[in-house]
Every structure is written in structure tokens, then in C-alpha cells.
Amino acid sequence: MMLKRRQALSSGGGVLAALACPRLLAAAPLKTIFMRGSARGERIWFDPVGLAVAPGTRLRFINRDQGNSHTATSYHPDNYDRERRIPVRATPWDSGFLLPGDSFEVTLTAPGVYDYYCIPHEMAGMVGRIVVGMPEDPLWEGARGDSDDLAAQAAAGFPSVETILRHRAISQEAKP
């Protein structure tokens, strides 16, 4: 269920449940991740770059960068044949390009660590990490290690899972 701009996607086994009962989506908690950039594009980032949420949380990505377009794209073979960096039970998502003011929603239900990136800005380190649930949750899947599939700038951009769980939301400036 891929829904663009002002639509939503449910990832990780919740798709059928959401279709059968739309109230599930409507009632799900909502968190927002902004796509931001400096005026001349020197810096671009997800805000927050690290976020901890409960399973079933709706995530809304909103492009607040007036001079650029962005994507929120999960690392997965289905997306440009990238290595998987989301739980195996999760459904990959790709927002497509969001122009200023556009938004995209996804609902994450499978517990574990989700890494994602912005297609045109991955090489500038615009990546993010979402932690769904807690490590003690059944079927939890932790963070993937470094890989040749990742540019150094991207690999350096993920806050640690421990830091995300401790602070729940990590701004770019506060990223360790």
C-alpha cells in the first residue's frame, strides 16, 4: 500500500490489518520527521535523525526545505537493489521525490531498526534511523553493521540504537 504525498504506507505485517480496519491507521500514534536544508543547500538533514517509536506508529515525512526535493527511502533490495537495513518482516518503502511542502506517511509495525536515506543526498550523509519497539520485543531485529553498500558519509550518519532509545529523538546537532 504505497501512498504518496498525503497518503500512507503500512510496513511490517500491518497492511492487511489496516485495510480491514481503517480505524487502526487513524488511531495509530503519529510522529513527524522533517526534511530540512540550509538556504543554499550546504547542509541537508532529517529532523530528527534518530527516532524511537512504538510498533504501529504512523510516521509522516514532511519536506520543509524550500529549495530542494527529498526522499525517504528504506535500505532494501526492492529499492534500487540496496542492502537490507530494515527488519526482514518489514515492508520496504520509498516516498519518491517530495517537493517543498509535500509529505508521505508510513506505518511501522515490525520491531527492530530501520535505516533509510534521501536518494539525492545520501552521499552528503542525509540518512536516518528509526527504532521500533524495544530489543526485548519478540522478533526484534537490531541494527545492521557497516557494509560496502554504504558510503562513508552515510555510514557515519546513523545515531546508535542505544542513544536513540535513551533520548527517544535525536536532532542532527545532538547526534553523537
Binding site: 550546504e42 539525492p120 552528503a124
Partner: peptide, 16 residues
């Protein structure tokens, strides 16, 4: 002259 992190069309760090 200034640095830009990238955008569609030139999706890598570059100079404007």
C-alpha cells in the same frame, strides 16, 4: 561560489 550537498540532477556534493 559555495558548497551544495546535492539535489536531483547533481546528486552528490558539488560547488555552485
Amino acid at each position: 561560489i559555495y558548497y551544495n550537498g546535492g539535489h536531483p540532477g547533481v546528486d552528490e556534493p558539488h560547488a555552485h
